[in-house]
Simulated assay, not measured.
Amino acid sequence: MKNSTRTFLADGGILLAAALWGVGFGVLKDVLDYLPPFTLLVLRFLPGGVLLGLFFLRRFRETGWDDLRDGALVGLLLFGGFACQTTGLQWTTAGKQAFLTATYVLLVPFFSWGIHRAFPGGRVFAASGICLAGMSLLTLRGASGINLGDGLTLVSAVFFAGHLMAVERFTRRRDPLVLASLQMVVLGLCALPFALFERPDLGGIPLRGWIGFGYMLLFCTIGAFALQNLAQKYTPSTHAALLFSTEALFGAASGVLLLGETFTPPMATGAALMMGAILLVELPIPFLRKGPSPETRS
């Protein structure tokens, strides 16, 4: 298969994962009414990692200590992101947090530049800035000031940027599905000590809560993270970060279509800017350097 075709399919996989997470945003808000955050992380990621591992059990036959080490690292980075984000949401708004989390779109190109010693390209930085501006219009409505929750959210963005970079690097030398399974198990185990203090009432969860949880487990956890790891083997993390930012766009669209929320003109402008940022990277523009392809990086 040609590299361009692989990259195209990988981009499609990332967009599908972003769509699953975006639609799941409203579902997550509902599920959190019945399950506390760390308990939800344990119930999502421990069974998710085990189920994915059992489904692709043959791929684990050659798993060694190096695979376990890399899986533990990406799992720790992902846990750091979710832990800071979940805790920070207690002191900030969901829309403001969505914007601050999206700052990983700008962090990833800088991390990539520092690690790979290769300039990601002018269009990547331009697209990242445009995307962040679009995200602000899409998510920030009446937000002001910086508080503890905002600070924790910015820390989570650093973890998520590191996670994207680690997945890009490790999927070149590890089985992407094995890595996805291991990171889920590690995240669930890290969340377990915190969940023990939450004491949720599992018997009081209504049917709609369990249906929402089922969606989170099957589509937002097993499906989306498997797609991410498979796709990032064939596309650079700078590119992936832009595509994953459409999670907010899909979330806003699902809110309008499924929940009857209002899609305001500033939100429409923000969505257009985000799509323009993606096209800036996807379409050939001679005077803007795109940067090295994923196959040429170390």
Rank of each mutant, 00 (worst) to 15 (best):
C190M: 14
C190N: 02
A191D: 09
A191P: 05
A191R: 10
A191W: 08
A191K: 11
A191Y: 04
L192S: 06
L192A: 12
P193H: 12
P193Q: 10
F194P: 00
F194G: 03
F194L: 09
F194Y: 11
A195K: 14
A195I: 04
A195L: 05
A195P: 09
A195R: 11
L196D: 06
L196V: 12
L196C: 09
L196G: 06
F197E: 14
F197Y: 13
F197L: 14
F197P: 01
E198N: 09
E198Q: 08
E198D: 03
E198M: 02
E198K: 07
E198I: 04
R199M: 02
R199S: 09
R199A: 09
R199Q: 10
P200R: 13
P200M: 09
P200V: 09
P200D: 11
D201F: 00
D201R: 05
D201S: 04
D201H: 02
D201L: 00
L202H: 05
G203W: 07
G204S: 09
G204K: 06
G204T: 10
I205R: 13
I205F: 05
I205Q: 11
P206M: 12
P206V: 06
P206L: 12
L207V: 12
L207H: 08
R208L: 12
R208P: 01
R208I: 11
R208D: 14
R208K: 15
G209T: 05
W210S: 08
W210Q: 10
W210L: 07
W210R: 11
W210P: 04
I211H: 00
I211F: 06
I211N: 00
G212V: 05
G212H: 06
G212K: 06
G212Y: 11
F213Y: 14
F213E: 03
F213P: 00
G214T: 12
G214R: 10
G214S: 15
Y215R: 13
M216V: 10
M216H: 10
M216S: 13
M216N: 04
M216T: 03
M216F: 08
M216Q: 15
L217A: 01
L217E: 02
L217V: 08
L218P: 00
L218E: 01
L218K: 03
F219D: 12
F219A: 14
F219P: 12
F219N: 08
F219L: 15
F219I: 14
C220E: 03
C220H: 13
C220S: 15
T221F: 09
T221V: 05
T221G: 03
T221P: 01
I222F: 07
I222W: 03
I222Q: 04
A224W: 14
A224N: 14
A224R: 14
A224V: 09
F225A: 02
F225P: 03
A226K: 07
A226W: 06
A226L: 11
A226Q: 05
A226C: 04
A226H: 03
L227H: 03
L227M: 13
L227F: 12
